[in-house]
């Protein structure tokens, strides 16, 4: 594979075709854990693993998968990896597993996983499929990490549990709303707005 092609995949996944602010896919199962940065990191790691491994598997099996039951096969492959992650998390980090609740299991129905399997992995060789999956997952994770950072710093004055200067002091009134569900919608909407505007102004310049 040529270097330019790889570069293109990176650009598409992280920026031009970003899963969150361009495709608006798969935000459901992960928005709920963005009130703490640590939870978001674990959740994103789980997503990166699931997405890349299932894209790899789907791509390897693409020639043996009958076309009309491919969705079912893809779902089962994804579910298989999610179960492994869930069991590992329960065994080695039960506290985290409890605070993530059902959301690890919900990666199965995360549209971005299914979306990448359908759009890329099912019709491309393994190497391309796994690169595409990894960079889409990274593009997804970095937006969620931005959301989580904003919410945790403004809402609790901490970052990864450590106090942030100023925000944890008495001069900063903590925004309780940031810990509650509505703020996730607001912050995500603002992020979509900002990134789309940047994209549009760049495209205008090119013309």
């Amino acid at each position: 594979m040529k270097r330019r092609e790889i570069k293109n995949l990176v650009y598409e996944g992280l920026w031009k075709n970003n899963p969150v602010f361009v495709q608006v896919l798969g935000i459901c199962s992960t928005l709920a854990v963005t009130n703490l940065v640590l939870n978001t990191i674990v959740m994103c790691a789980a997503l990166v693993l699931t997405l890349s491994l299932s894209a790899l598997t789907v791509s390897i099996l693409r020639e043996f998968t009958p076309r009309n039951i491919r969705m079912m096969v893809e779902t089962l492959i994804i579910a298989f990896y999610v179960i492994i992650i869930d069991v590992l998390l329960k065994a080695y980090w039960p506290h985290m597993s409890e605070s993530l609740g059902p959301y690890v299991g919900l990666i199965i129905t995360n549209c971005i996983v299914m979306g990448r399997c359908e759009a890329c992995a099912i019709s491309n060789p393994p190497f391309k499929a796994i690169l595409d999956a990894i960079f889409n997952a990274f593009g997804y994770s970095f937006i969620l990490l931005i959301i989580a950072t904003i919410r945790e710093v403004l809402g609790m004055g901490t970052f990864l549990g450590f106090n942030v200067p100023y925000f944890s002091s008495q001069y900063w009134d903590k925004w309780t709303i940031m810990v509650m569900p509505p703020s996730a919608f607001f912050v995500l909407a603002i992020i979509i707005w900002v990134f789309r505007s940047i994209q549009m102004s760049r495209e205008d310049k090119k013309k």
């Binding site: 509505p182 996730a184 995500l188 909407a189 789309r196």
Partner: peptide, 13 residues
Amino acid sequence: GLQGAGITLIIVG
């Protein structure tokens, strides 16, 4: 930039 998904999310919020 807010059309479509953006405004929907704000209303949901």
